[in-house]
Simulated scan of single mutants.
Amino acid sequence: MRDLMGMMKKAQELQGKMQTMQAEIEDLTVDGTAGAGMVTVTLSGKGEMRGLKIDPSMFQEDDVEILEDLIVAAHNDAKGKAEVMMQEKMQEITGGLGLPDGLKLPF
C-alpha cells in the first residue's frame, strides 16, 4: 500500500511538472534559417509560426520558386530545433522515472 501511495505522489508531481513545462514551451521561440540566412522562420515551442524574415534580395520575379523552397526549409529547420528542445525538457522532467529510451509522451 505504501508503494501505491508513493507512486500516486510521484504521478501528481510529474503532472505538475508537465503542466509547468507545457507553459514554458509555449513561451519559447526558435529560429530556423535557410539559404545562408536569407530566410528565417520563427516558431513557438509548439510549432506555431511567429515570424518570417526574408532578405529583400530574394524579391525577384525569377526567384519565386527558390524563395518558396527556402521558406519551407527554414520552417523545417525551426521545427526540428523545437522538437529537440522539447525532448531535452522532457529528459529533465522524466530523467528520474526510469522510462525506457525512445518513449515519447503524447504532446
Rank of each mutant, 00 (worst) to 15 (best):
L4M: 14
A74F: 01
A11K: 14
G45S: 11
I54G: 00
L28I: 08
G35C: 08
T40L: 12
M58S: 10
D62S: 14
A23C: 00
A78K: 00
K81L: 06
L105D: 09
D27K: 15
M38T: 13
A82I: 01
A23Y: 04
Q19H: 10
L28M: 15
G47L: 04
E88R: 10
A73D: 01
T40D: 07
P56C: 06
K81A: 09
G6A: 12
A74D: 02
K53L: 10
L70Q: 03
G16P: 02
M21H: 05
G102K: 06
A36P: 04
A82K: 00
K104D: 10
A34N: 05
P56W: 06
L28K: 13
Q60L: 07
V30H: 06
I54V: 15
L43V: 08
R2V: 14
M1G: 14
K104C: 00
R50E: 12
T94E: 02
I71C: 10
R50N: 06
T33W: 04
L97T: 06
M5I: 09
A73R: 00
D27F: 01
G47H: 06
D62C: 02
M38K: 13
E26P: 03
D27H: 12
G80N: 13
L70D: 01
K81Y: 01
G16V: 03
L70W: 02
R2E: 12
T33S: 15
G95P: 11
E83P: 02
K9D: 15
Q22H: 11
K79G: 00
D31T: 13
P106Y: 10
A82L: 05
D55T: 04
V30D: 04
E13R: 12
L105G: 09
D77C: 01
M8F: 15
G98M: 07
D3C: 02
